[in-house]
Every structure is written in structure tokens, then in C-alpha cells.
């Protein structure tokens, strides 16, 4: 099994950290993982994306031409990465940042209104965990227990009291993702 994922959105949405949690969870399950950010003069409001590969085998290229799954969280990212989903692959998008939805018919398209849900729950900072929950519902690349363990491992101790909130967010994401 190899899952090649691109996560793309605005800087500040937690795109890179969501990818990191996913990669870390894969590592904890003994899988091969690569996390490759499009680093640069990134800033809040600029574009940010990260390629995460989780595999049973050694990962060849961290840089890819196409992806099994694209998670896009704003319009420019949708325009950039919708054409790069492999036929039969998956595209997940957040309705809030994307007024013009995806149009491809040869891929599975899912919508997750994570921004709205985060606002409703008054947990705006867990937006990325809601999205991650959505991904895990449709592609259980890693188990939720591994994600929670990854959070314990990567979050500084002083933030550990927020882990239940993150779990709540992940479960919310699993609930609200819907196939189009």
C-alpha cells in the first residue's frame, strides 16, 4: 500500500502541521513516510502545500507528478491540484474557501465544511484536524489512535490538554464529510 497525498491551502490553515501529524502517525505504525513541504517565503495568507507519502515500501520520490488524494482548502489550490489527481483518485475540498467546486468526473470528490464546523464548535484552530478526520473516514491511511499518539509526541507538553479537543475535531470531520 502506498498513499500519495497533497494537502494544499493558505498559510495559517495548518496544512503543514496536518501533514506532519499524518506522517508521524504513519511512522508510529511502522510505515515508510515522507513529508515534503513546498517551503518558501511562505506566510499567513500565502499559499502552502505539503506532499505526504505513507507506504509499506521505501518511498522513491518525495516530489510527484500526480496524487492518489488531494486535499484542497482554497480556490488556487483546487485549480492547481484538481488536474493532478490520478484517475480514480480522491479529491477532498472545503466548501468555505472554494466558491467554484471541482468538475472532474473520473475521481471521487468529497466535500467537507470544516471551516463552518470549526466556527460552530468554537474551535477554529482545530480546523485542520477536522479535515484530517474527513480524510481518515474515507481513507484510513492511519488509525485514529496513531494520530492521537502522534499529537502527544509532537505537541509540547503545555498543549497536551488540547488533545481531547483535537480528537473531538477529528471525530467531527469523520461525521461531516460527504461524497458528491
Amino acid at each position: 500500500m502506498t498513499e500519495e497525498i497533497i494537502i494544499a491551502g493558505f498559510g495559517g490553515q495548518g496544512v503543514l502541521s496536518m501533514g506532519k501529524i499524518l506522517a508521524y502517525a504513519g511512522l508510529m505504525e511502522g510505515k515508510e513516510v515522507t513529508w515534503m513541504p513546498a517551503y518558501g517565503p511562505e506566510q499567513r495568507g500565502g499559499t502552502a502545500n505539503v506532499t505526504v507519502i505513507v507506504s509499506d515500501d521505501p518511498v522513491s520520490s518525495p516530489i510527484l507528478s500526480s496524487y492518489d488524494t488531494a486535499i484542497v482548502l482554497n480556490q488556487p489550490s483546487l485549480e492547481k491540484f484538481e488536474p493532478k489527481v490520478k484517475p480514480g483518485g480522491t479529491l477532498i475540498y472545503d466548501g468555505y474557501g472554494i466558491p467554484e467546486p471541482p468538475t472532474r468526473k473520473d475521481i471521487d470528490v468529497y466535500r467537507i465544511d470544516a471551516m463552518d464546523a470549526a466556527a460552530e464548535m468554537n474551535l477554529i484552530k482545530t480546523f485542520n484536524m477536522i479535515v484530517l478526520g474527513g480524510l481518515l473516514k474515507i481513507h484510513p491511511v492511519v488509525g485514529i489512535e496513531s494520530v492521537l499518539a502522534a499529537l502527544r509526541k509532537t505537541l509540547p507538553e503545555r498543549h497536551h490538554h488540547l488533545i481531547p479537543k483535537n480528537e473531538e475535531a477529528i471525530r467531527k470531520g469523520m461525521e461531516i464529510i460527504k461524497k458528491l
Partner: peptide, 10 residues
Amino acid sequence: DGAIGQMMEK
């Protein structure tokens, strides 16, 4: 190079 420097792996 920047790719090997910036990417995270096991």
C-alpha cells in the same frame, strides 16, 4: 539540496 534539507523522513 533544499529538498533533502527541508523534507521529513524516518
